[in-house]
């Protein structure tokens, strides 16, 4: 039964209308995926900001300075 349905779906897809609908669906999905990729820009910038502003100085392991730095960073974002 499921096999019969699959065959039917494939036959419908092969028609011009089916191809058209299929392409529309794929374009929509591609657009969503492009947006997902674009969203990585913010993520990357935020993480880089944290690494350069916080993690590099943190590696110096000065406890007092670290607490001060964390608070100053929080206030600045």
């Amino acid at each position: 039964m499921a096999e019969g349905r699959d065959r039917m779906v494939n036959r419908l897809r092969a028609t011009r209308a089916g191809e058209y609908l299929d392409l529309r669906r794929r374009v929509r999905r591609l657009e969503a995926e492009v947006q997902e990729c674009r969203a990585l820009n913010i993520r990357l910038a935020e993480l880089t900001d944290i690494v350069t502003e916080l993690l590099l100085p943190v590696a110096a392991r000065d406890e007092e300075k670290l607490a001060e730095l964390l608070e100053k960073y929080r206030q600045s974002v």
């Binding site: 935020e46 944290i50 916080l54 607490a67 964390l70 608070e71 960073y73 929080r74 974002v77």
Partner: peptide, 15 residues
């Protein structure tokens, strides 16, 4: 939604 805020507040509180 601003990861810089979440991570810095999280780090302060975790300590």
């Amino acid at each position: 939604l601003e990861i810089r805020q979440v991570l810095s507040v999280g780090a302060i509180l975790a300590r």
